[in-house]
Design a protein around this nucleic acid. Structure first.
Lengths: 203, 203
DNA sequence: GAATTTATTGGACGATGGTACTAATAGTTC
DNA sequence: GAACTATTAGTACCATCGTCCAATAAATTC
């Protein structure tokens, strides 16, 4: 078990092995952090946030329990880090849609539709973590980042604030709807509903 | 502590004491169930679903732990019952809007806006329980009932299926947005956003 | 290559959890 | 009031959890 972890730790080539000792050390630490966060997310995906304990995370990562504690003093820190990570991930994808895509709306629709298929567990994890955020004011800004980015994506289509607000809420709500449905979601249909919501701005 | 529970158990007048012995017994059981569910919800409201244990529920209800186990063999049963109860509650309020209100849309907007104020904890509890449902297919129909009723409310305003779908998702998303915001929600504004979403049907 | 810092380990402690078990207490039926 | 069932109460068992601690290994510095 630990063998796998060590292998994973060492196989990704370390760029340069010269005199950047300090950076090298820091990097290792950062990698461990990332590894632990990833293990945490895997558990959230599989069993939900309730399944996250120091022990389960450690087991998932193939390290000892004390080590997770070494990097994240409390379980809370770990969950916060995980929420932040997953949010960063998602927002960067949306950011990419805004900056590098001809039709960001279609891209968003696809992203949303994924919640019904391959991205289901990830979407569940996000929802769970954002629910966590709803209870802790300190976390809300992080959770809101997703919404802010969706809003910015919406702003490429219209300027009306109310429409934008509705657009974000709609995107979020569609995601929830998909999670509560058993069938897969049709990206085309999602896009249709989304763009319909934007039509109002042209009135 | 148990004294309070006993008092609460006995003070609500028991209608008829004649020969309906069996019914009387059943009724008491039902009342206990309801009491335990209510205690559960109180904990979900206050501390989140993670805070629900046989012991905390029993303490909240002022009864012994074994009793909660007597009525709900497993914690899961308890959470399921709580989810069902809270959903029934909410749907019945929406039902009332549809059947007895001149302006159901305004009523819904008010209901949604409550999530930012006095109904915040209740809304949090609902979200938490519905998140639970997303992970258990068996629970999804229960969680979907709210959506079905909102859809029916929407159907009093338009017939377009896509618009209805968007309307439900929007209602849900607005609720989430309010939960992630720190400020209170303005019912009038919510209603405006909602009715804007319905405008499309008249195109 | 010794000293120092950082990373990692294994194990322990006290607290809490789910659940089972048993005895007592109503309440009902005959 | 005896026999029986439904209900309540107390408690005990075992697993797990968060967290701590002392010791070790590895890396880094001088």
């Amino acid at each position: 078990m630990t063998g796998d972890a060590m292998a994973a730790e060492h196989d990704s080539g370390e760029a340069g092995g010269g005199h950047e000792t300090v950076d090298g050390r820091k990097l290792r630490g950062q990698r461990r952090r990332a590894q632990i966060i990833e293990a945490t997310l895997e558990i959230v995906r599989r069993d939900g946030a309730a399944g996250v304990t120091h022990r389960t995370v450690a087991k998932e990562a193939g390290i000892t329990t004390s080590l997770t504690l070494y990097y994240f003093a409390t379980l809370d820190d770990l969950l916060v880090a995980a929420l932040t990570s997953v949010t960063d991930d998602y927002t960067s994808r949306i950011r990419q849609l805004i900056d590098h895509e001809d039709d960001p709306l279609a891209g968003l629709a696809e992203l949303i539709a994924e919640s019904g298929g391959p991205g289901r567990e990830r979407a569940l994890a996000e929802r769970e973590l954002s629910t966590l955020a709803a209870r802790r004011p300190a976390l809300r800004p992080i959770a809101r980042r997703w919404r802010d980015n969706v809003a910015e994506l919406g702003r490429t289509q219209t300027d009306d604030p109310d429409t934008i607000e509705g657009f974000v809420a709609l995107s979020d709500g569609l995601c929830t709807a998909i999670l509560l449905n058993d069938r897969e979601a049709d990206p085309g249909h999602i896009e249709a509903v989304l763009s319909k919501a934007l039509l109002r701005s042209s009135e």
